[in-house]
């Protein structure tokens, strides 16, 4: 990974977590929207599973440590999100299809994380809540993905960040 990409990834993680906590989550508490998850999916869909898993794990771990629940849960879920979306990477796919995929994947990862909270008996999630919030979460994540995916594609295809993908 080039220094430019490393810096960009660190900045992206920080900005995504800050915006999630101060803007996205307070704006719609009744759904499970996650800007960081959509970002992980968008990067993985563009760069493949290697970049997806690295970004997913790092973002999830920072989010875990900054939250009240047990560390490792989001790291695990977003690691899977990065790998799953990375395996679906397709350079010639239309941005709208990529946004749809990112939103669906982020919603599924969010539901799995909520189920994970119930499995480890942590506060914050119930199985019923995970199921009930699926549709509103998908709608919200679609809005986020419509903004994040084109921006991510443009940034990752910029000359300064363009480097080796992971094959």
């Amino acid at each position: 990974m080039t220094p430019a990409r490393l810096g960009a990834a660190a900045t992206a993680i920080l900005v995504a977590l800050l915006l999630q906590a101060t803007l996205v989550a307070p704006a719609m508490l009744s759904a499970q929207l996650s800007l960081p998850a959509v970002l992980v999916a968008a990067v993985a869909l563009e760069l493949g599973p290697g970049a997806g898993m690295s970004l997913g794990f790092a973002t999830g771990l920072v989010a875990d440590l900054g939250s009240a629940h047990a560390a490792g849960l989001l790291a695990l879920c977003w690691l899977g999100l990065g790998i799953g979306c990375g395996l679906l990477a397709e350079p010639h796919r239309h941005a709208a299809a990529q946004a749809l995929l990112a939103a669906v994947a982020a919603t599924v990862a969010g539901a799995l994380a909520t189920l994970g909270l119930t499995v480890v008996d942590e506060p914050g999630g119930t199985a019923l809540g995970a199921v009930q919030s699926l549709l509103p979460s998908l709608a919200g994540n679609l809005v986020i993905a419509a903004l994040v995916v084109p921006l991510t594609r443009r940034l990752l295809r910029a000359d300064v960040l363009r480097g080796s993908g992971d094959g």
Binding site: A21, T22, P36, G66, A68, G110, A113, G124
Partner: peptide, 16 residues
């Protein structure tokens, strides 16, 4: 004043 909610998911029932 509430500055933020949990940084991970929308269902993080904590505020900062």
């Amino acid at each position: 004043r509430v500055m933020a909610l949990g940084p991970g998911l929308g269902f993080d029932w904590t505020v900062t």
